[in-house]
Design a protein around this nucleic acid. Sequence first.
RNA 1: GGCCCCGUAGCUCAGUGGAUAGAGCAACAGCCUUCUAAGCUGUGGGUCACACGUUCGAAUCGUGUCGGGGUCACCA
Length: 598
Amino acid sequence: MSFTTTIQAAAIESLEELYDHQFSDKDFQVNETKPEFEGDYTIVLFSLLKPLKESPDNLGKKLGNLILKKNASFFSGYNIIKGFLNLSVKDGALVALLQKNYNDICFGKKALSHKKVMVEYSSPNTNKPLHLGHLRNIFLGWSVAEILKATGCTVYKSSIVNDRGIHICKSMIAWEEFANGATPASTHTKGDHFVGDYYVKFNDEYKEEVSELVRNGVEKTRAEKDAPIMKKTQQMLLDWENGKPEVMELWSKMNGWVYEGFDETYKRLGSDFDKTFYESNTYLLGKDFVQEGLSKGTFHKKEDGSVWIDLSDVGLDEKLLLRGDGTSVYITQDIGLVKQKFEEYKLDKSIYVIGDEQIHHMKVLKEICRKLGMPFADKIIHLSYGMVELTTGKMKSREGTVVDADDLVDEMVETAKKHTEELGKVKDFTEDELKDLYETLGLGAMKFYLLRVDPKKRMVFNPEESIDFHGFTGPFVQYTYARIKSILRKVEEQGASDNSQSKITNEEKLFPLERELIIFLEKYLNVISQAAEELNPSVIANYVFHLAKTFNSFYTEHSVANAESEEKKTLRVHIAVMTATVIKSAMQLLGIKVPERM
RNA sequence: GGCCCCGUAGCUCAGUGGAUAGAGCAACAGCCUUCUAAGCUGUGGGUCACACGUUCGAAUCGUGUCGGGGUCACCA
């Protein structure tokens, strides 16, 4: 049980004894005391004054005295300022916390939840490489999955690959027309970039053909339909749907190239999936329930044979589910796949990490499931996040105004190298160590940058300014970790006994920064729960930054290896070890590695 | 136009019912014979978009206004 809940419980117990009345944690708040006041935790009394007909002073005194009496080993005193009852925790109670097994505190997995959850993220198209927007998506999804695991959930990471459709055919046609049999291998190009280049080539050629037609007096919308390359692409899509062998072969060959490229990127990013769905396997799934919906009367058919659902009773529009020609649309496939997921994995929750432009779509999806009486309709959760935009506006892959994921990673790693060299630290490492370090730092900076902000806020990325390595950043936290490890190495060299195993004396008087650190470390499990509840990794990022910052202050103020006494040294080694453990754990939840040295 | 999200220091963001609203960046002033200065300490910088309301108490809740974005496809 955490300190705040312990205190809440103690207060309830005392209140009930004093007033012969039932209290709950909703009746009053327990906060951390603001630094400008004496005390560690504050019980806010205002909300209790009226129902108990007490003055702040009277209630504060009665409650303060009783809590102190009943928990003499935990609290050392109290003060009352206005309606705030400030309680001070005994040094001994804080020290006792350090004597617990570090792993219990950091990775206690008190199993707050045993839910089975699927987190679906990344979900790329196979006609172009991953870009900055995918990175936010991937880091978010991966991190949320880790956070949920840390609370005890069983998590399946999944991705749905959009491997079919007109956009794929565009790359395919362009390759047929212009590649002369070139391959990623023959051109030494990463597969996804290779295919993406043909997607761009398609659009260039298409634009050219359209303007050519317009010059010859064809109306623009007409020209867009009649451009020869577009007609070929449409035909190819039909051939694909009919399973024409040459087309299928080309399709799997080119997708194969893309997957090789994606795998390389995912591997470098440290991202992975337990299950990958392919749209080519699932796009027909939804058709079954269309019949079901029609017979139930939930759906209706129009004269042209198209199938619709009316959602106007819940404030949404009429939505198409099946075209007149019997082909399904996006949402139809979605419903089919949702059903399959819940049934196959027996999920309690399915989280979709998708941009906020699809909020409406996901609302419609949920609503249709609900109207069909699917029991999991309310377990569909859309974790929506704001788009990443550039200072020059939106990213558009067709126009080449995207920040490519691989390029950005390269750049970040390069920046890490530059910083390290400038600081003159290169000589301490071997070539291989440096390579690892640059990856760790570059990726750390990038992941932290994308995760430290509330997911739902859109963010503007300025490609001109490289991501920072100072202040509220990944490398700042990584640096703190490396320094702690350095201290611990030194302590070990000093030898004799292994300090982290030896006992600390409860009598030790704590300095303010020592207290602050222990109290802050104690909060970690609460922070994980909050992040899990909000599906928000930025909660973790803010916490771990603050922790690192506090440790850095402590670091300058107090020496560990050369502490003023053996007792102090032991105590501080415990604090350092625990801080390092929490930093490593928290960063891991963000998908960020921490270096032993930097 | 309907619905949804956002508006906090020059910039990027925390804080979502409690005390005098906090960080980072940028600016300025200090700190390396002492565990790694990618660090630490300090200074300046705010009608929390605006208005009204609810409350003992509002950046936080409600209503309205203004500004920015998204969405309302037989696209995915």
